[in-house]
Amino acid sequence: MTQAIDKLVIGGREFNSRLMVGTGKYASFEQTALALEASGAEIITVAVRRVNLDRSKESLLDYIDLKKYTLLPNTAGCYTADDAVRTCRLAREAGMSDFVKLEVLGDEKTLFPDNEELLKAAKILVAEGFTVLPYCSDDVIVCKKLEDLGCVAVMPLGAPIGSGLGIRNPYNIRIILENVSVPVIVDAGVGSASDAAIAMELGCAGVLMNTAIAGAQDPIAMAEAMKLAVIAGRLSFKAGRIPRKLYANASSPLDGMIG
């Protein structure tokens, strides 16, 4: 049996899983549900969009056990603080929860955060009682400002959204980890299980991903791989790795050699 990892506490709530997953880009709602199950995630992100009045009334929520998952509505697609705040207010009304993944984007090509608008939105939302988890640049100054504003976590990107490039600047993530006290969750950039493990080995509190699972050839198998990678990475971090050395250090005793 796998050793249990320590619980993640965000916004006063406890979670057993440190992997958070998105629900976009799957081939079907059935596949989404199976991948969520395989990932072991307890926090799942959703987007807020107009109800399609012409199509079938079938919805993602018909496939998801809301007793099992905490919905984390996002503000994906918002490019101004005003739009993001408006989306969060609607999300709270639709979901009756204060948790929001705040993202305010700066540009369609990179989907990098617009930190100025992000800070503006975070300030308003915290004042309105939201539990804010902001997607932000891997920049310690922005992360500290978000923490000071009252965000319950910071979620720096590992690489551009959907890029699968992995943790491009682990040193920036380490600097963030050393200088903020709220949970640091790497959000975006993960491509494979080893990327998730690296984020956790750095000491991150969790990892959030969507495309790495939904876009894999077998999303359900990848969901399980990510679950195991996050557990492995956390255990490895807590266990404390050996120092890196340039030269060899024999594992077998030198005493008692024959001859």
Partner: peptide
């Protein structure tokens, strides 16, 4: 607010947005 749905009257020219949760990252 949901509690107001029954009371909230609609008028000519009102702009209404109805949103829901969909799959997203």
């Amino acid at each position: 607010p949901k509690a107001e749905y029954e009371k909230q009257l609609l008028s000519d020219g009102d702009k209404i947005e109805i949103v829901q949760f969909v799959g997203g990252g």
